[in-house]
């Protein structure tokens, strides 16, 4: 399987679309996901876009997308193939896939595919965990460059494989630049790029691209759930306030609350 081909592995997650208004089930057992629109996690579209651009610049030969999840995820893998990924890996898993399980499965895929770069989103917008990339990097004993807003590859060897990545990261203080040896894990921030739109002919073409189905068991990964989800509650609602008519009334209102 893993020849000397220059590969990038992109991890994607199927999530509730970011435009959907999330509601908690009345019995506190979860959030309502029946019939809601599902999409590729927005950060993962950015991850795929970055991989495709690297390939288009000639620094990679193949872009593989992978997801760990139920059968429905194949829809999102097809979207990624339509965007331009060369092939897809679906690791079948029903129920909750915690970040450590996803990271262990992705680790097995790196062993199989030998990518020089793994690109993931910085967080999945359903669970907002922001863990998987960092966990994969730890298990793989490779560098991590999280929250990337710029990626430059250099140091090609005679075979042409990039050796180093220079990554600009969005951190609380501003922008931090790191240099990491490859292979490495990069996680994407929103400003890294703007993902391309999928065109209809690409959707047709994507149907013929390879999509391989695997199982966690076949990869030797146990689907352990270590965190019990006890209950789900709606967030505390803020009281709707009042309208003031002009700046003077606003200043008066703030003064009366002791805020000025």
């Amino acid at each position: 399987m893993a020849s000397g081909m220059k590969r990038i592995l992109v991890g994607i997650k199927r999530v509730v679309d970011y435009n959907v208004r999330i509601r908690v089930k009345p019995d506190a057992s979860g959030v309502i996901t029946d019939g809601v629109k599902m999409s590729v996690n927005p950060f993962d579209e950015i991850a795929l876009e970055e991989a495709l651009r690297i390939k288009e610049r000639g620094a990679a030969e193949e872009v593989i997308v992978a997801t760990i999840g139920p059968a429905d995820c194949q829809q999102q893998l097809r979207t990624c193939l339509a965007m331009g990924a060369d092939r897809a890996l679906h690791v079948q898993a029903d129920g909750i896939v915690e970040p450590l399980v996803a990271a262990r499965a992705l680790l097995k895929l790196t062993e199989r595919e030998q990518p020089f770069l793994v690109i993931l989103g910085k967080q999945a917008i359903d669970d907002d965990n922001s863990q998987t990339g960092q966990m994969l990097a730890a298990l793989w004993q490779r560098p991590q460059a999280t929250f990337a807003s710029k990626v430059q590859l250099d140091g090609a060897t005679p075979e042409g494989q990039p050796r180093l990545a220079r990554v600009t990261r969005e951190v609380d203080a501003g922008l931090e630049t790191l240099e990491v040896e490859l292979p490495a894990v990069i996680t994407t921030d929103l400003r890294l790029n703007e993902p391309r739109y999928v065109k209809l002919p690409d959707i047709m073409k994507a149907k013929k691209k390879p999509l391989e189905t695997l199982t966690l068991a076949a990869l030797g990964v146990e689907q352990r759930q270590r965190l019990k989800l006890v209950r789900f509650d709606p967030p505390a609602q803020r009281q709707k306030g009042i309208k003031v008519k002009d700046a003077a009334e606003l200043v008066a209102a703030l003064k009366s609350k002791g805020l000025l």
Partner: peptide
């Protein structure tokens, strides 16, 4: 749960084979 902690804590969790509770 700052960019520093978000970056480093999951890496520690994986090294310790532990699940992380974010935020």
């Amino acid at each position: 749960s700052t960019t520093f902690g978000k970056d480093v804590m999951p890496r520690i969790a994986a090294l310790l084979d532990a699940a992380q509770i974010s935020d």
